[in-house]
């Protein structure tokens, strides 16, 4: 398919050359290209509020991205000021306050050089996972897949948006046969002695896929971060979502896979969907540029919330085969 595109571009380009196409630099005449405050952050009811503040730059600006470390950032709960947020480095601002479900939160940012910006979001109730079933399918080239059937009930009489993510949690050790940083020894199968230089738990997102050919109709966007969908087709129903993930990035001896069903507000749903489309198509001359959604008034970025219902499954490596163990 790519070759077709290349050939098409060659033919069109040849025609343009034949037509003595010419190129010149022109002025970018933009009426409203003021630098804006960029506010990014997702809050939830199980952790303190942290947001990131930076500033946009002109499309032709070559300078490095600048974080704003001297902005005044305030958090409001249902229009009542909770307090100011403190810069903790590289543009991140934090306040030790845990949001509550069903409440509206506003972050207002002001800075002497730029227009004030703010965004509002609501922390939603999470939606419970009823059950998760898994089974393995074996591919021809050891491309074995871990398949999931996830059952949940969409709340009735309200518009709901979701994001589904998988988190891989495992203990990682890094080995060296020369560097002796850690006391623990590991004796390899060939009796060589190696030293463990690092050991710790790692959490990484797992890529989720929907089944090809039988694509789940409710899935509207899929990316490395997860699957995004709304209840447009399943409103008020109990639904079993089918997806899979490869065994490829299982590491170590034991992996715990967290399945997270996140209830997200509409703004975050629009943001994720448009962001993924943006990355998929950016620079493609055959499609229209995609605008990424923002809910920041007078600014850019996304300030939203997520309410996570999480379940987990444990897989154990036995003779290079992974087996589902228990929760």
């Amino acid at each position: 398919m790519k070759n077709i595109k290349v050939y098409l571009v060659i033919v069109i380009t040849s025609l343009m050359i034949f037509s003595i196409a010419c190129e010149k630099v022109i002025n970018l005449d933009i009426e409203d290209a003021k630098i804006k405050i960029v506010l990014n952050g997702i809050i939830s009811s199980d952790s303190a509020v942290i947001v990131h503040i930076s500033k946009s730059r002109h499309i032709l600006d070559n300078a490095q991205i600048s974080f704003l470390s001297d902005a005044q950032v305030k958090l409001y709960e249902n229009e009542t000021e909770i307090g100011s947020m403190t810069h903790i480095g590289n543009g991140f601002y934090k306040i030790h306050y845990t949001p509550k479900k069903g409440f509206d939160y506003k972050v207002a940012v002001s800075h002497s050089n730029y227009d004030d910006a703010y965004a509002i979001t609501r922390v939603l109730n999470s939606v419970q996972i009823i059950s998760i079933d898994t089974f393995t399918t074996y591919g021809q080239y050891q491309d074995n897949n871990l398949n999931f059937n996830l059952k949940f009930t969409d709340p009735i009489d309200e518009k709901n948006y979701y994001m589904l993510t998988l988190i891989n949690h495992y203990y990682e050790m890094q080995y060296s046969d020369t560097v002796k940083n850690i006391d623990t020894l590991y004796v390899g199968p060939d009796t060589t002695i190696v030293y463990i230089t690092y050991g710790g738990y790692v959490r990484t997102p797992r890529r989720i896929f929907v089944l090809p050919n039988t694509e789940d109709v409710i899935i509207e966007s899929q990316s490395e971060k997860g699957l995004v969908f709304s209840d447009e087709l399943i409103s008020g129903k109990t639904y079993t979502l089918r997806f899979y993930s490869s065994y490829y990035n299982f590491w170590g001896d034991t992996n715990r896979v967290y399945v997270q069903l996140k209830s997200i507000p509409k703004e975050l749903y629009l943001y994720y969907k448009s962001l993924q489309q943006y990355y998929n198509n950016h620079g493609d001359p055959f499609s229209e540029p995609v605008m990424v959604y923002t809910n920041v008034v007078n600014g850019l970025g996304i300030f939203s919330s997520q309410s996570i219902y999480s379940d987990s499954l444990v897989f154990i490596n036995t003779n290079n085969h992974w087996y589902y163990n228990n929760k």
């Binding site: 804006k36 930076s54 590289n90 540029p289």
Partner: peptide
């Protein structure tokens, strides 16, 4: 449809992200 500015996407905070420099986002 023409871009007039550039800005950072959402980066969720974790214990590592605060150490990333701007090059990471480029």
């Amino acid at each position: 449809t023409l871009g007039i500015a550039r800005y950072l996407p959402l980066v969720e905070y974790d214990e590592f992200v605060q150490y990333y420099d701007s090059f990471y986002y480029y």
